[in-house]
Simulated scan of single mutants.
Amino acid sequence: MTGFWRFCSAAVVSLALFVGGGAGAFAQEPERILVFAASSLKDVLEDAGAQFDQSHNTKTEFSFGGSQTITRHVVAGAPADVLVTADDAWMAYAVKNGVLVDDSVVELASNGLVLVGSEALNAEAVELNAEALQAALADGRLAMGEPETVPAGRYGKEALTNLGLWESVAQRVAPMENVRVALAAAARGEVPLALVYSSDAKVEHGVRVLAEIPQDSHRAIVIPGALTSGHSKASEGFMEFLKSAEGRKIFQAHGFKVSGD
């Protein structure tokens, strides 16, 4: 009898382990959400994704790059659920190519422009006139997004043109593939000046703001987001989260402006 009960006991333990393991095996896997977004939105969107995943059975992942690059990838068929660009021109390009859900485009936030320099090199404030810019640049260059394709570069060229400063710096521009590359160049002291978004200056402690670009010198810098035609169900919830009061607070915390500011 002793051997029999020992057998029964072992059988019960084995069954319990099987059932427990089976429950874990059949637990629902987190639903993946893939967001294609502009490089300038990396910090804010990763923060938002982490907070969203905490209260949902989701795993939000990102592919960051220049707005022109990520949008072209989505148009070419990349498996994104959500597209968030740094301006409305590239979002309009995605709409025109029919890769987004109709009427899903929404303005999530807006941004501004600033001139920054290296904190370590004690860069000093710069007045927005040709003489002061030339003096600040010395033998160096002005890093900014590529003026013809990168949103930050287009806004920057527009602002400098309207301020009567473009001609004085056009030959000194170091065009970058996206605004975060320009920001990093200033932080490392590789360039004396970089023209970047206000939100970039807030997250990069290696730079200091040397001048704020007047808002009326360029078109409004809007941050639009939209669902792609092949989006997952979970991504709908993520977009709603970004538009919510909680989502707006995250954008504000990262230096963006939201409706009501």
Rank of each mutant, 00 (worst) to 15 (best):
S63R: 10
E212N: 13
R248E: 14
P175M: 04
A92K: 14
V105K: 09
V207H: 06
G237P: 07
A187S: 14
K59V: 08
V169F: 01
N57Q: 08
G77T: 11
A253H: 08
V126N: 07
H254W: 06
E177V: 12
S198H: 01
E146R: 13
S14L: 14
G65V: 01
P214S: 12
S199E: 07
L142Y: 10
F241R: 10
A138F: 03
A170I: 05
S229T: 13
A220P: 05
R6A: 07
A182T: 01
F241V: 09
T161W: 01
V181E: 13
G22W: 15
A50C: 00
L128T: 03
T69A: 04
V203A: 15
A125S: 12
W90Y: 15
L41R: 03
E240I: 02
A130G: 09
D81N: 11
A16T: 06
G112E: 09
G247L: 06
F18C: 11
A11K: 00
V258A: 05
S235C: 10
A120D: 11
V203I: 14
D261I: 00
A50E: 11
V101M: 03
P214L: 06
A11P: 04
P214K: 07
E148I: 01
F7Y: 02
Y197R: 03
A76K: 13
S259A: 13
K157A: 12
G22I: 00
A76C: 04
P214F: 06
A226T: 08
V191T: 11
F241M: 03
L163T: 00
G21T: 07
T60Q: 07
V74L: 11
Q54A: 14
V173K: 01
N122M: 08
G140M: 13
I70C: 05
A135L: 10
G237D: 10
R188H: 07
G77I: 15
